[in-house]
């Protein structure tokens, strides 16, 4: 059954057209077809959150979506956050400053979860942050520095907004 479908997907503002088998997962499409390897594949069954990307602006798990389902939609991956190598997103800067990562494997998924969270929640408290990242597993940090970094990011984003 070697059926394939043409799809057009916009990732970080760039439009990509490809033929895909319907069984191709969106995470694999992003990594292998679009060549954007910042999106990480951890558990491949929707538990670890490493593959989180923005689908029409909302965080979703790209390992439990089919690439064909992204046809005609807009995605943002972690590569879409920084304006340039010298000009990172305030959330990225906050993670750097507050040691919000160690090995970094979970970080792209956590960032893509937090970007829309912090847009909706300008001044979250610690409990809200912990709930927001409850769908993302980190095996290094024990989460404390991720929480600290997120609270710092909220502060930075508010400063940018002022």
């Amino acid at each position: 059954m070697s059926n394939s479908y043409p799809i057009t997907v916009t990732i970080n503002g760039k439009t990509i057209e490809k033929q895909v088998e319907p069984r191709m997962l969106l995470a694999d499409f992003i990594r292998h077809e679009a060549g954007l390897t910042g999106t990480h594949v951890g558990c491949e069954h929707g538990v670890c959150g490493a593959c989180t990307v923005l689908f029409d602006g909302k965080p979703v798990r790209s390992c439990i979506m089919l690439a064909v389902q992204a046809n005609g939609h807009e995605l943002t991956t972690v590569e879409g956050l920084a304006q340039s190598e010298d000009n990172m997103h305030p959330i990225q800067n906050a993670f750097w400053e507050a040691h919000g990562l160690q090995c970094g494997f979970c970080t792209p998924g956590i960032l893509m979860t937090l970007v829309p969270f912090l847009e909706e929640n300008k001044n979250p408290n610690e409990a809200e942050v912990r709930e927001a990242i409850s769908g993302n597993l980190c095996r290094c940090t024990g989460y404390q520095h991720i929480v600290d970094a997120t609270l710092l990011a909220a502060k930075k984003l508010n400063e940018v907004a002022e």
Binding site: G49, V60, R61, T113, F117, S134, G135
Partner: peptide, 9 residues
Amino acid sequence: IAHPQIRNR
């Protein structure tokens, strides 16, 4: 129900 990422789909 699960996490926001799940409820978005």
